[in-house]
């Protein structure tokens, strides 16, 4: 997709309907998974579905699949910096009580 024409890309309607269906199925699936006991895997599966749903919205409804690298960079960059916030904060909380002064 060349930079010049990406803004004029028109996504076929069938794509929108397919994504819509996938999102609805994902929602139902999340609910179903939530009710069965998979231990720690419950969270992993539910968040994986949520990330997948969000990715579908970003790529197709928000047209990022057809956008310039710069937009990809903006999306990726924000997630990267959010991860810095989360990881370095968790880094503290996970290690609370490992050692103490004195």
């Amino acid at each position: 997709m060349s930079d010049n024409h990406n803004q004029h890309h028109i996504v076929p309607l069938s794509t929108y309907y397919t994504i819509f269906l996938a999102l609805m199925v994902g929602t139902a699936l999340t609910w179903w998974v939530a009710t069965i006991d998979l231990g720690a895997m419950n969270n992993v599966i539910m968040l994986t579905i949520a990330v997948t749903k969000a990715t579908l919205v970003v790529l197709f409804f928000m047209h990022v699949k057809y956008s310039s690298k710069l937009i990809w960079l903006a999306v990726g960059g924000s997630i990267f910096f959010l991860l810095i916030l989360i990881v370095l904060t968790l880094n503290d909380y996970m290690a609370r009580g490992w050692y103490t002064f004195g």
């Binding site: 999102l23 929602t27 999340t30 609910w31 939530a34 009710t35 069965i36 006991d37 998979l38 419950n42 969270n43 539910m46 968040l47 579905i49 949520a50 749903k53 969000a54 919205v57």
Partner: peptide
């Protein structure tokens, strides 16, 4: 899409 599982669904299986 994130708030729904994070707020509504985290303890259902137990």
């Amino acid at each position: 899409i994130f708030l729904f599982p994070l707020l509504y669904l985290i303890g259902r299986h137990v």
